[in-house]
């Protein structure tokens, strides 16, 4: 399989694998850092995902084959190149209550208590594999196998901003009020997306995140 393919006439997809794996994902971020540190003229931006990196470019400046040749030379370097040092971000989280409405259902689906789910969710560091869905939404993982839970059969039409949720082996936080099909287990007062700020996003792909349980009433 050729790892490089056109995705339309202005983007090139580099596929490095087909599974959710931290080492594979670190390689995606390392390749993105390598490209962005000294980009070829015509590269507009890169979008890391679990196991693939999308490179957007201006076809008035670069042809597909010029870009592909340039990128092939960098594919091997990405193994030795270091990604930027990941930041460690703590997310104070109020578990359960109205904004964590699925906490009890998640617990009983696994024959656990809500306190067990909170402990299992908050005791490990998560990697921000990628961002997408809405501005600022982090796809994080992997959950402890004991609390891996399928998506809801019927998505909610509106989930409030700041809601902490899980789906499959992933955990995420809704930055904006939006529809959502994940299991809601808590809420954080942190603002994940503030377009007026100099640093509009709380997270970046490749960051490390830990949830810190807090007490409090529903907002």
């Amino acid at each position: 399989m050729d790892a490089l393919k056109p995705l339309g006439d202005s983007s090139l997809l580099i596929t490095l694998g087909d599974e959710m794996d931290p080492r594979l994902n670190r390689r995606v971020h390392a390749l993105a850092s390598l490209i962005e540190a000294a980009p070829l003229a015509g590269i507009r931006e890169t979008v890391p995902a679990y196991a693939a990196l999308l490179v957007h470019y201006d076809p008035l400046t670069l042809t597909y084959s010029q870009l592909a040749d340039w990128l092939r030379l960098r594919l091997d370097q990405a193994d030795s190149a270091s990604a930027r040092t990941p930041r460690q971000i703590e997310v104070p989280t109020r578990y359960g209550g109205a904004s964590g409405a699925d906490l009890e259902a998640v617990a009983s689906a696994h024959a656990l208590s809500p306190a067990d789910v909170i402990r299992l969710h908050s005791r490990r560091d998560y990697l921000v594999y990628m961002m997408g869905f809405t501005p600022g939404f982090p796809y994080m993982g992997a959950l402890d196998a004991a609390i891996v839970t399928p998506r809801l059969e019927t998505p909610r039409t509106s989930v409030p901003a700041g809601t902490v949720a899980i789906a499959g082996a992933q955990t995420g936080i809704y930055p904006l009020a939006s529809p959502g099909g994940w299991n809601l287990i808590g809420w954080t007062p942190l603002k994940l997306f503030d377009p007026a700020s100099d640093s509009p996003f709380l997270f970046a792909p490749g960051d490390t995140v830990r949830f810190i349980p807090i007490e409090g009433d529903d907002a």
């Binding site: 995705l7 339309g8 202005s10 983007s11 997809l13 596929t15 087909d18 599974e19 959710m20 979008v47 890391p48 995902a49 679990y50 196991a51 693939a52 990196l53 999308l54 957007h56 990628m130 997408g132 796809y139």
Partner: peptide, 8 residues
């Protein structure tokens, strides 16, 4: 696995 996509 979710991956980047584009207009079109």
């Amino acid at each position: 696995l979710s991956e980047g996509m584009t207009i079109g």
